[in-house]
Design a binder for these strands. Structure first.
Ligand SMILES: [Mn+2]
Ligand SMILES: [Mn+2]
Ligand SMILES: [Mn+2]
Ligand SMILES: [Mn+2]
Lengths: 221, 221
DNA sequence: TAAATTTTTTAGGTTTGCCTAAAAATTAAT
DNA sequence: ATTAATTTTTAGGCAAACCTAAAAAATTTA
């Protein structure tokens, strides 16, 4: 029987996993920022996670999840994203509302529950933000994906994910009818601010900033 | 915005509510037993709940939920029973398995989540054990109900609930094909141990003990 | 390379929720 | 009505997670 971790431990593991993706080396202060806690609290938890074999930790230097820690992270991410899918697909929550509720639901620790939920939802591959859902073994099905900011001019692509999950950005994109699955291409790139003019099939071209373009992941066709 | 209560506080409130149903006056030791905690811990929490206006408490005597405390209890019970219904009806959990998982899910505090779940499930009136589900205002639709042990001889009745939710009892009843909705009558009552001989439509009569009969709630026709 | 700055850890508190053991109040038995 | 037994509360601790302030280490700047 795999050990169970506290809600706090799970949130730390998930945040460390997230920061590792973005930027290999994780620092105490970055994690403190991300978890809205003070660095002193982080250090304490790092020692606890290391003692439990979830973390490889060099005091005063950096740290990263161990193999076991990574496995745990993927289980939590699986729970989070399956619940998000459920909330949108079955309960008619909107895109922007689900994150907060899923943040709580993800801590209900029952493998049977999650595997049955997965089956009930017909084994979805992506959550409502386009992020991939790990399978029951923690495996993620990767697909070619890059930020819209790096898509070549006039190349067709499909939106697969929106990285930043702030309500503001999601609402903005919704208002432009830009959702997961939308097909688009870049018509022009303004050199001086790297903003993009993008065009969806039959729709008018719209302008988006470099920051927004970086947060949108696409799959070139 | 209604205040939020901790998981521990919610479990105390729910247990006090439960013990009040069974036996008006609640004692520290009974609650300690029910919550698997020591009496000293109970006293501490009683003071906290009283300070928050959820409990009417006379030290060294008894206590009961205040009006507000009762309202909170019904919200938690609503969450618990809706999740149980969801687990059985949508995720194909069996009767006996749901309680433990619902015990965790009931603490996800989002009114919107529960009200949308209720709608998704088409506003069920009873949970899988036959217990009534309070509506969004905490109202319970009552129906005439009494323990099978008090049903008169040869009077037809429908099973509406099973009080005790231990896995053992539920499995036992399942094996006898006794479920919520089963119609039955009592053919004989053995005076020396109060065991009952019960008969379901077209089926062979079976014997059940007084304890089991007390745990089964029925609605006389 | 030495000093200044920033980052991280350690030391010492707080709150919540639990515990054991002792004291106080209530209830039951002579 | 005392005394005995039981129940409840109080007192004093402990672990988990958080905090602030001070010390230590690492990094940057001069
Ligand atoms: Mn969370
Ligand atoms: Mn998501
Ligand atoms: Mn519970
Ligand atoms: Mn139930």
């Amino acid at each position: 029987m795999p050990p169970n971790y506290s809600v706090s431990e799970e949130n730390y593991i998930k945040s460390i996993h997230y920061l590792q993706q973005v930027n290999e080396a994780v620092s105490t202060s970055a994690l403190a920022e991300h978890l809205n806690a003070k660095p002193a609290s982080i250090t304490e938890m790092l020692k606890k996670l290391q003692a439990k074999g979830l973390l490889l930790y060099n005091p005063y230097k950096t740290f990263r999840l161990s193999k076991e820690g990574n496995k745990v992270a993927l289980i939590i991410i699986r729970r989070h994203r399956l619940w998000e899918f459920f909330l949108v697909d079955k309960l008619q929550f909107s895109w922007e509302e689900v994150h907060e509720v899923a943040e709580e639901l993800e801590h209900v620790r029952s493998k049977k529950l999650i595997d049955k939920l997965d089956a009930f939802l017909s084994y979805p591959k992506f959550d409502p933000h386009g992020d991939p859902i790990p399978d029951a073994n923690g495996k993620i099905n990767i697909q070619q994906q890059l930020p819209l900011s790096r898509l070549p001019l006039n190349k067709q692509a499909v939106i697969t994910a929106v990285q930043d999950q702030s309500s503001e950005l999601l609402s903005f994109l919704s208002s432009l009818n830009i959702v997961i699955g939308t097909r688009l291409e870049i018509k022009r790139r303004l050199a001086f601010d790297n903003s993009l003019e993008i065009k969806c099939r039959n729709k008018q071209a719209v302008n988006i900033s470099e920051q927004v373009a970086k947060a949108i992941q696409v799959n070139p066709l």
